[in-house]
Amino acid sequence: MEIQSVGEAFIRPGQLLTDRTALAAVSRWTQAVSEADGVCVVHLSSGVDPCELTAELRGQGLRASPNHVLRGQPLFFGGPASRPFPTPPIPYKAGRSRSHVVVGLLDTGVTKHPWWAGSDWYAGVGPEEADAYEGAQAGHGTFIAGLLTRRAPGVRLRVGRVLDGDGLTDEATVVRALYRMRERPPQVLNLSFGCHTFDDRPPPLLSDAIGALSATVTVACAGNTGSDRPFWPAALPCVVGVAAVDATQQRRAPYSGHGTWVDACARGDWLTSSYLDAGEYGGYAAWSGTSFATALVAGAIADAARHEPAKEWIRNLLDSEETPQIPDLGVLFPTSL
């Protein structure tokens, strides 16, 4: 994937995202257009700056954005674990619990594992949703799937692969995957990836795509940036943004994003879960990052949704004056995993 750095944001060079209403306005800078699933990717003529053109179009009231690059947020630096570490098998049986709740998981995919052998939801995971076996973030989706299914026993996952083995994707890919969810929206959606934007403003097409899933609680990671700079889509008002606390579950993990735009937090350090059965790994690993704190919060919401609508439950929890808050981290979701 070709990537261009703009400040601390990353974009696909020469690409602009918009909807059909702006195509006429960009026609003189357009080399080609690919349109699918609710978004137009405009391939710009050589020398045209997508960030400058975005600002001009937004000044005209049009929906536009550079095609931002997003990345999964496991921890690779500056914390207790710089990569996934092999761990002995984790004694867990799924049991016979069944839930009507569906959790959407857009990530690197999910591979086979004893924890969901024979489950209805995994039977529907095709080759195109299989987890990557090569790359710095191979196994990321499988790790998250384990956290979700343990935190919300019996939950059904709906898997979509949007991240490659290095944990990379772009805004157009995510928007299109979200668009395809409209027909059968899940109750909860886990997005353990994100990005900064070139101007620190919310990306409008990504915001529109998430907002269109009006019955879904979307949960996204606050990023491993160690800063209060907004991280998207977690910082969107319609998203539950999740930071990570350390193993004490009392302090912010040093790498975690934080700020008034964060809604909740959970442990992100040294979590253990399902992983690839390859090389030194026997299907289990320990890993850290806001990616995994996000899965714990999404799982807690999915578990509560067995008895109460997910939107109603999380809104009451976050809005209650009696719910304990950690400054710049939001509501703590304790975990024993």
Rank of each mutant, 00 (worst) to 15 (best):
G109F: 12
P204N: 09
E35T: 11
A220R: 10
H307M: 10
D49Y: 02
V125Y: 03
V240W: 01
G211Q: 12
A304T: 00
A310I: 07
R201S: 15
A215C: 13
G14H: 09
P327I: 04
Q325W: 12
D303A: 08
V102W: 05
S97L: 15
P202I: 03
T260H: 14
V331G: 07
L296D: 04
G194L: 04
G211C: 05
G279I: 11
L168N: 07
G279Y: 14
R156F: 02
W232T: 13
R161T: 04
T54L: 04
S273H: 11
G289D: 04
P185N: 07
D164E: 06
D37A: 14
K311G: 15
T111L: 14
D200R: 15
A293N: 09
L178W: 06
W287K: 01
R267M: 09
R267F: 01
T142G: 15
T108K: 04
V242G: 06
P153I: 01
V331D: 08
D164S: 11
F198W: 14
T30R: 11
L189R: 08
F76M: 02
Q187E: 15
A81R: 13
G259Q: 03
P233D: 05
P86G: 01
F198S: 09
G14Q: 12
A22M: 05
Q249V: 10
I326T: 04
V26Q: 04
L206N: 10
A132D: 13
S82M: 09
T108P: 00
L62E: 10
R184S: 12
A55W: 08
D263C: 10
T169S: 14
A24I: 14
F231S: 08
A55T: 12
V33A: 03
V26H: 08
K112N: 13
L296R: 07
D49K: 09
R58Q: 15
A212M: 11
L106I: 06
T335W: 07
C195L: 02
A32F: 02
A305W: 01
D131G: 05
W115D: 01
S214W: 11
T294C: 15
R150F: 00
A220I: 10
H258N: 06
G124P: 03
G289E: 00
S65C: 12
A247K: 14
V42Q: 05
S214A: 14
V48H: 12
V110E: 00
L317V: 10
R182G: 07
T18E: 05
W313G: 03
N67A: 12
A302G: 05
S207P: 00
A81V: 05
S256L: 04
A220L: 08
G61P: 15
G7D: 08
A310M: 07
G109W: 08
F198E: 12
G61D: 09
G283C: 13
D263A: 14
T216W: 03
R98Y: 05
V101R: 06
D263P: 00
L213M: 07
T142I: 07
G257Y: 09
T108C: 06
I144S: 09
A302W: 07
A285V: 00
I90Q: 04
T142W: 13
G211K: 08
L106M: 06
V26K: 05
A123M: 13
